[in-house]
Lab assay of single mutants.
Amino acid sequence: MTEYKLVVVGAGGVGKSALTIQLIQNHFVDEYDPTIEDSYRKQVVIDGETCLLDILDTAGQEEYSAMRDQYMRTGEGFLCVFAINNTKSFEDIHHYREQIKRVKDSEDVPMVLVGNKCDLPSRTVDTKQAQDLARSYGIPFIETSAKTRQGVDDAFYTLVREIRKHKEKMSKDGKKKKKKSKTKCVIM
Score class of each variant (00 low, 15 high):
Phe82Trp: 07
Glu98Val: 01
Lys117Asp: 09
Ala83Phe: 02
Glu91Ala: 04
Thr87Tyr: 09
Phe78Cys: 04
Leu120Asp: 06
Lys104Thr: 07
Met72Cys: 07
Asp105His: 09
Tyr64Gly: 15
Thr74Leu: 09
Gly115Ser: 06
His95Thr: 04
Lys88Trp: 14
Gly77Val: 12
Pro121Lys: 07
Val125Glu: 13
Met111Ile: 13
His95Met: 02
Glu98Arg: 02
Asn86Val: 01
Ser65Gln: 09
Asp119Lys: 04
Arg73Ser: 12
Met111Asp: 00
Gly77Asn: 00
Arg123Phe: 10
Leu120Gln: 10
Gln70Tyr: 04
Val125Asp: 12
Ile100Lys: 01
Asn86Tyr: 06
Gly75Pro: 08
Val114Pro: 00
Glu107Lys: 05
Glu107Ile: 15
Gly75Glu: 05
Gly115Trp: 07
Val103Tyr: 15
Met72Arg: 06
Asp126Glu: 11
Met111His: 00
Val114Gln: 01
Val114Arg: 00
Leu79Asn: 00
Arg97Gln: 12
Thr124Pro: 12
Lys101Ser: 06
Leu120Trp: 09
Val103Ala: 09
Glu91Met: 06
Gln99Ile: 06
Ser65Arg: 06
Phe82Gln: 03
Asp119Arg: 01
Lys117Phe: 15
Val125Trp: 11
Asp119Asn: 06
Ile100Gly: 01
Cys118Asn: 09
Pro121Asn: 10
Tyr64Ile: 12
Glu107Gly: 09
Glu63Val: 05
Asp108His: 12
Cys80Pro: 02
Val103Thr: 02
Met67Arg: 09
Met111Phe: 09
Cys80Asp: 02
Arg68Cys: 08
Ile84Asp: 15
Glu91Ser: 01
Asn116His: 15
Phe78Val: 12
Val103Met: 10
Ile100Val: 04
Leu120Pro: 04
Asp119Val: 02
Leu120Gly: 11
Gly75Lys: 03
Val109Thr: 04
Met72Asp: 07
Ala83Pro: 14
Glu91Trp: 08
Thr74Arg: 09
Lys117Cys: 15
Asn86Gln: 04
Ala66Val: 11
Leu120His: 07
Gly115Arg: 02
Glu76Gln: 11
Glu76Ser: 10
Asp119Pro: 02
Leu120Ile: 06
Arg68Asn: 15
Ile100Arg: 01
Thr74His: 12
Leu79Pro: 03
Gln99Ala: 04
Leu113Ile: 09
Arg102Ser: 12
Cys80Thr: 04
Val112Pro: 00
Gln99Val: 11
Glu76Met: 14
Arg97Phe: 15
Asp105Ala: 10
Asn86Ile: 05
Arg73Thr: 10
Cys118Gln: 08
Gln70Val: 04
Ser106Asp: 09
Lys104Gln: 10
Glu91Pro: 04
Cys80Arg: 01
Met67Gly: 13
Arg123Gln: 12
Ile100Asp: 00
Val125Ile: 12
Phe82Pro: 01
Tyr71Thr: 14
Cys118Ser: 11
Pro121Phe: 09
Arg102Thr: 07
Tyr71Phe: 12
Cys80Asn: 03
Lys88Met: 13
Asp105Tyr: 03
Val125Cys: 13
Pro121Ser: 13
Asn86Lys: 04
Ala66His: 06
Glu107Thr: 08
Lys104Ala: 08
Phe78Arg: 01
Glu63Asn: 04
Leu79Glu: 00
Lys101Leu: 10
Ser65Gly: 13
Ser122Thr: 11
Asn86Leu: 01
Ile84His: 15
Ser89Ala: 08
Ala66Asn: 08
Gln70Asp: 15
Glu107Ser: 11
Asp108Asn: 10
Arg97Thr: 13
Asn116Tyr: 02
Cys118Ile: 11
Ala66Met: 08
Lys104Ile: 06
Phe90Leu: 14
Gly75Asn: 07
Lys88Glu: 12
Ala83Lys: 05
Ile84Trp: 13
Gly75Tyr: 14
Ala83Trp: 03
Val125Gly: 13
Val125Lys: 12
Leu79Gly: 00
Ile84Pro: 15
Tyr96Gln: 03
Phe90Met: 09
Gly115Gln: 05
Glu76Thr: 13
Gln99Asp: 00
Val81Lys: 01
Lys104Arg: 14
Lys104Glu: 06
Asp126Lys: 05
Ile93Gly: 01
Asp105Cys: 14
Arg97Val: 15
Asn86Asp: 15
Asp69Gly: 05
Asp126Ala: 08
Glu76Cys: 15
Arg97Glu: 11
Phe78Tyr: 08
Lys117Val: 14
Met72Ile: 13
Gln70Leu: 07
Arg123Pro: 13
Met67Ile: 10
Asn116Phe: 01
Ala66Leu: 08
Cys118Asp: 08
Cys118Gly: 12
Ser65Thr: 08
Arg73Trp: 07
Val103Phe: 12
Val114Glu: 00
Asp105Pro: 06
Tyr71Leu: 11
Leu79Gln: 01
Lys88Leu: 07
Ser65Met: 07
Lys104His: 11
Ile84Phe: 13
Ala83Gln: 12
Ser106Asn: 08
Ser122Tyr: 09
Cys118Glu: 11
Asp108Arg: 05
Ala83Glu: 15
Ile100Leu: 06
Phe82Met: 14
Phe82Ala: 12
Cys118Tyr: 08
Arg97His: 05
Ile84Gln: 15
Leu79Arg: 00
Glu107Val: 12
Met67Glu: 15
Val81Gln: 04
Asp105Glu: 13
Gly115Val: 11
Ser122Arg: 09
Asn86Cys: 04
Asn116Ile: 11
Met72Ser: 07
Arg102Asp: 02
Asp126Met: 07
Val103Lys: 05
Phe90Cys: 06
Asp69Met: 03
Ser65Ala: 08
Val103Pro: 04
Leu79Asp: 00
Phe82Glu: 00
Val125Arg: 09
Pro121Gln: 11
His94Tyr: 05
Thr124Ala: 13
Lys101Cys: 07
Glu98Tyr: 01
Lys101Met: 13
Cys80Glu: 03
Tyr96Glu: 03
Glu76Arg: 05
Thr87Ala: 14
Met72Ala: 10
Gly115Pro: 05
Ser89Asp: 04
Pro121Asp: 13
Asn86Glu: 10
Asp69Val: 01
Leu79Tyr: 00
Glu63Cys: 03
Lys101Asp: 03
Arg68Gly: 12
Tyr64Asn: 15
Met67Thr: 14
Leu79Phe: 08
Glu98Gln: 07
Glu63Met: 03
Phe78Gln: 00
Val114Gly: 02
Asp92Arg: 03
Met111Gln: 00
Ser122Trp: 08
Asp92Ser: 03
Lys117Ala: 14
Ala83Asp: 15
Gln99Thr: 09
Ile100Glu: 00
Val112Glu: 01
Asp105Leu: 04
Ala83His: 06
Tyr64Arg: 13
Gly77Asp: 00
Thr124Gly: 12
Asp119Glu: 10
Ser122Cys: 10
Met111Leu: 06
Asn116Trp: 00
Val109Glu: 01
Leu120Ala: 13
Asp108Ser: 08
Val112Ala: 01
Tyr96Ala: 04
Leu79Met: 09
Thr124Cys: 10
Val103Trp: 14
Asp69Phe: 00
Ser65Phe: 05
Gln70Ala: 06
Lys101Tyr: 02
Arg123Ser: 14
Met111Asn: 02
Met67Pro: 12
Lys101Val: 04
Asp126Gly: 10
Gly75Ile: 13
Ile100Ala: 03
Ser106Met: 09
Tyr64Val: 14
Glu98Phe: 01
Met72Asn: 06
Ile84Glu: 15
Met67Asp: 15
Lys101Ile: 05
Cys80Ala: 05
Glu63Phe: 02
Gly77Cys: 12
Leu79Thr: 00
Leu113Asn: 00
Tyr64Gln: 10
Asn116Cys: 15
Arg68Thr: 12
Ser89Glu: 04
Glu76Phe: 12
Glu98Lys: 07
Thr74Trp: 10
Glu107Ala: 12
Lys88Ser: 10
His95Ala: 05
Val112Phe: 04
Val109Asp: 01
Val114Thr: 01
Lys104Pro: 02
Arg123Asn: 13
Val81Tyr: 00
Ile93Leu: 08
Ser89Leu: 09
Gly77His: 01
Gln70Arg: 10
Thr124Val: 11
Thr87Leu: 07
Val125Gln: 11
Ser122Lys: 09
Arg123Tyr: 09
Lys117Leu: 15
His95Glu: 08
Met72Phe: 12
Tyr64Ser: 14
Phe90Asp: 00
Lys104Cys: 11
Glu76Asn: 10
Ala66Phe: 04
Glu63His: 02
Ala66Gly: 10
Asp92Leu: 05
Leu113Thr: 01
Glu98Met: 02
Gly77Glu: 01
Glu98Asp: 08
Lys117Arg: 11
Met72Lys: 05
Pro110Gln: 03
Gly77Ala: 13
His94Phe: 04
Leu120Tyr: 06
Glu107Trp: 14
Gln70Asn: 10
Gln70Cys: 09
Asp119Tyr: 02
Ala66Thr: 10
Thr74Met: 14
Val103Asp: 08
Lys117Ser: 11
Arg123Ile: 10
Met111Pro: 00
Ser106Cys: 14
Glu63Tyr: 02
Val125Pro: 11
Tyr71Ala: 12
Lys117Tyr: 15
Val81Cys: 10
